[in-house]
Simulated assay, not measured.
Amino acid sequence: MAEDTQAPQLRVFASPGRYVQGRGALARLGELLAPLGSRPLLLADDTVRGLTEGVLAPAFSRAELPLTFERFGGLPTRSEIGRVARVLADGGHDVVVGVGGGTAIDTAKAAGDDAGIPWVSAATVASTDAPTSALSVVYTEDGGFESYRFYDRNPALVVVDTGFVAAAPARFLSAGIGDALATWIEARAVERAHSTTMVDGLPTRAGTALARLSWDILWESAPAALEAVEHGLVTPDVEAVVEANTLLSGLGFESGGLAAAHAVHDGLTAVEHTHHLAHGEKVNIGSLTQLVLEGAPAAEVDRFAEFTARLGLPTTLTEAGLGDVGDEVLDEVVAAATAPGETIHNLAFSPTAREVRDALRAVEGVGRRARRRAGLEEPRTPGGH
C-alpha cells in the first residue's frame, strides 16, 4: 500500500491566556499586568486616555508599575504598526497594552509581535471581537482592508471594563452585536464545508458551540442590553452581551471560522462610500449578503434583518451609502470580497462575482421590508454620497 504523504488536517482551538470582565476591571489592570512585565506601554488615543488615566494611575501605582502612554494614530496600518514597534524597542518596554477599541488593540498586537513582547487587550467598548484573537486586521492609509496578520499566540491577557462599555455610546455595543451575530452564520457554513478556520485547522466542536452560544445570548439579551446602555447602566443583560460580543464571538470566529460575511465587510472597505460605518455595521450587511447567497429560507433572512434593524444596525445598501451606485462600484466591492485568500472561499460552493453582486443588490429589498415590519423609517443615504 502506498504511503499517504499528505499532512493530516488537525482541529485547532486558540484562546487568550486570561479573560477578565466586569465593572471596575480596569482598576485591576496594574496587578493583572505585573506578572507579564515591569515596563508596560499603553497604546490609546487622546479620548481613551482622557477617560481611563484617572482609573489607571492609582492601579499602576499600587502595582508599582510606571504608567506610560503612547498616542495611537487611529488605524492599524503598516506605518503605524512600525512606528509603535520602534517606540517599544527604544523605550525598553516588555509588554504592550492596547486600550480602547479594536483598532488600538490590533495595532498593539502587531507592534508587540514585531518587538517580540507579550500583548494585552484592555477594551473600553464591546464593538468588535478583536480583543481575544491571534490576528490583526491591517488597513491601508485611506481606510481600506489590506490583509489579515496572524500570530502564533493570542493576547496574554484580555480585560473588559463593562462600566466603560455602558458609558460609551450605544452604537459601539450595537456594532459589536453585528460583528458577533455573524460568528454563528459563518461558523456553521465553515462546519458544513469542512473548511479551515483562522487558526489554520478544522473547526473544533468547542469553537462552533461557542459561536452558537454567542448567537443565542444575543437574541435573548441584546435589546435589553442596548436599552440599559442608553442609560449608562450595567445590568446582567449588558454583562451577557459584552461576553457574547467579546469572548464568545472572539473564540467562535477564530476557532469556528469566517466565511462570506467578513469577506463582504472587507469588500465594503474598498470603496469610500462605506467609511462612515463601523466594522460590525459593515459585517451586518455581509451577514445578510451571505444568507441571501446561501439561499437561506426567506423567513430566516427576514427575521434576521428585522432583528438587526431593531438593534440599529444597517440592513440596506442605502444606509451603507451604496443605494444608488452603479454596478462598477459594487464590482469593486465584489472584487475585493472574492479576492484569492478571502474567507468567502470557505463556503461549500464557489459563488461567481455576478452571484455575489446580485446578493448584495438583493439586500436592499430585504432590509427595506424588515424596516417596514419593524415600524422604522425608510433608510436614508448618508450625507455626501
Rank of each mutant, 00 (worst) to 15 (best):
M1S: 14
M1V: 11
A2V: 11
A2D: 13
D4E: 14
D4N: 15
P8K: 14
Q9Y: 09
S15R: 15
P16R: 11
G17T: 08
Y19T: 10
V20W: 04
A27Q: 12
R28G: 11
L32M: 11
P35M: 07
P35Y: 07
L36S: 03
P40M: 11
D46C: 01
E53C: 02
A59G: 15
F60N: 06
E70L: 09
F72N: 03
G73K: 09
R83Q: 08
R86S: 15
G91A: 13
V96I: 15
V96F: 04
V97P: 05
I105Q: 06
I105C: 05
A111P: 01
I117C: 06
S121V: 07
A122M: 09
A123E: 06
A123M: 09
V125P: 00
A126N: 08
T128A: 11
A130N: 08
P131R: 10
L135K: 14
V137S: 09
T140V: 04
T140H: 14
F150W: 13
Y151S: 06
A156L: 04
L157W: 07
V159H: 04
F164V: 01
V165W: 01
A166W: 05
A168R: 08
A175T: 04
G178W: 01
L181P: 01
V190H: 08
P203R: 12
G207E: 12
A209I: 05
L213Q: 15
S214T: 09
S214F: 03
I217T: 14
L218F: 07
W219T: 03
A222V: 05
G232T: 09
A240N: 12
V242M: 05
E243F: 03
L247N: 09
G250Y: 11
A261Q: 13
A263Q: 13
L277P: 00
L277T: 03
V283R: 04
N284G: 01
N284R: 03
I285L: 15
G286S: 13
L293V: 13
A296R: 15
P297C: 13
E300V: 15
E300C: 02
V301D: 02
R303E: 15
F304P: 01
G312R: 04
L313Y: 06
P314D: 05
T316K: 00
G321M: 06
L322C: 03
G326D: 08
G326F: 06
D327I: 03
L330K: 10
L330N: 07
V334H: 10
A337K: 14
G341M: 13
G341K: 12
N346G: 10
L347K: 10
V356R: 11
R357Y: 08
D358F: 01
G367C: 03
R368W: 00
A370N: 04
R371Y: 01
R372L: 11
A374Y: 05
G375H: 04
E378L: 07
G384M: 08
